[in-house]
Design a protein around this nucleic acid. Structure first.
Lengths: 249, 249
DNA sequence: CGACGTGTTGAAGGAGCTCAATCTAAGTGG
DNA sequence: CCACTTAGATTGAGCTCCTTCAACACGTCG
């Protein structure tokens, strides 16, 4: 289980460096965090609502979502994670998970025990700060999704999501902003945007008809980014991709 | 301006203690955080999207909301803050505000410079941890709102919000769960729930007709909590009100 | 090859929106 | 103290965007 020889946590370090500087000692300590590697199958639940969370999961490969189930079965996806994301710091620091964590594809995690995060906090406050910032970016994305679901029409919601995916995939090295492999089914796109799969389909077809996107297999090509961004009222500021880190030491 | 004689930050300390223990030194250091007191009028913007955030605001009295404006004018309220809340740690740690902070009523803040939070982080990691936890609870509420907006019908959304307000007001000492003063106009309730003010009105009237709630002036009485919670599919877990703090030292 | 998950399409209905008028309460200035 | 103003609440009518239901197509994988 324990598998610490290769620098498994390198994707996490890269993510944290995206939020600001870390000195050599901090970088070393980050990579040295004890962890185990675990694999989950597609559709498998990694954490269930109500579980006591003992691990912070660093996503090494694959895709997973955080989601809540309301009333009788309807599902809302509240976050989408890819490559290098620190998943479930949220839950693990609050003790009891208030939502589910589910794998979309086969997924590989580096599981870091919560206690180790706490110790890191004490010894390397700056590293903790970077982790904190990461959860804040998550929250920022969440706020944008809220606005997306609450105040845009169906076309806007889907367009906005496509733009976001493009940029995030590019950043994660999984494609370009204009061409990437869609990890979500149309039903899952609906669960992100608060729509039905049927209506998501109609929106996608409409974009395709209008020459804004093209699809082949699972690949999405965004041919007219400008128009898609306009329909989705998309402004990437909320992703905090290119923050001026200087402000934060 | 500087007004450090009375323990202005006491509400913040109380909030942080809600997330876990702090020792005497940590409590003292928290109360000793340098800050200035500022008052804002109703409807005034405290922070605007795009602003460089230099302060973390502790809400001493009044109500404020965090909100985003999409496309041409539609507004989505992404968080509601009352008494003692640490507002805008989110923004202040990320540098550039990705949303607006607006006062609903006359509002008094203790403004703590961001640098002081950063220093606190170094010297008292446990205090920083409690602040982090606070932002995580904010995020948890945000996720529930997302599910509310995306996957419940209009009656459910409004009912859910009323239940949440009741519990939060009770916790903040501003009323009981069954009777509190509504700080939001129906239009603002719409901006929280992704509905129009007209439809919010119809939902409230329906609840009143069915004997679930009563309203007089701005006061809301919840007469049938069970039914309201059922309509809103309400489960207070996401508010993390009574967490088992023992888990976190 | 057959089955299941996913995507696609049509038709019909309804939940919530838009527009607009009216009503109420709480100021505000004279 | 009262006329006037204004923000917010209330109500109705019509409409539309999105859902629901249902059928069918496609492709991938056993």
């Amino acid at each position: 289980m324990a598998d610490t020889e290769p620098p498994s946590l390198e994707p996490m370090l890269r993510k944290l460096l995206g939020h600001g500087k870390l000195n050599a000692a901090e970088r070393t300590a980050t990579l040295a965090l004890p962890h185990t590697i675990r694999t989950f199958g597609a559709h498998e639940y990694v954490v269930r609502q109500g579980d006591v969370a003992r691990y912070c999961c660093v996503l090494l490969s694959g895709f997973c979502v955080r989601q809540k189930v309301v009333g009788r079965g309807a599902r809302q996806i509240v976050a989408l994670h890819l490559n290098g994301d620190l998943v479930d710091l949220q839950n693990s620091l609050l003790g009891v998970a208030d939502h589910n964590l589910q794998a979309l594809t086969v997924v590989r995690f580096a599981m870091v025990p919560r206690d180790m995060i706490m110790r890191m906090m004490d010894e390397y406050p700056v590293v903790a700060m970077r982790m904190w910032q990461d959860t804040l970016v998550d929250a920022s994305v969440g706020r944008e999704w809220m606005a997306n679901i609450g105040r845009r029409d169906a076309a806007g919601r889907v367009a906005h999501l496509l733009c976001e995916l493009g940029l995030r995939f590019q950043k994660a090295g999984l494609g370009s902003a204009e061409a990437f492999e869609m990890p979500l089914t149309q039903e899952q796109i609906g669960d992100v945007t608060g729509l039905t799969s049927v209506h998501v389909n109609r929106m996608l077809k409409a974009f395709e008809r209008d020459g804004i996107i093209r699809r082949s297999r699972k690949t999405v090509h965004i041919d007219d980014w400008g128009q898609l961004a306009s329909i989705g009222d998309f402004d990437d500021q909320y992703l905090h991709l290119n923050e001026d880190k200087l402000a934060l030491s």
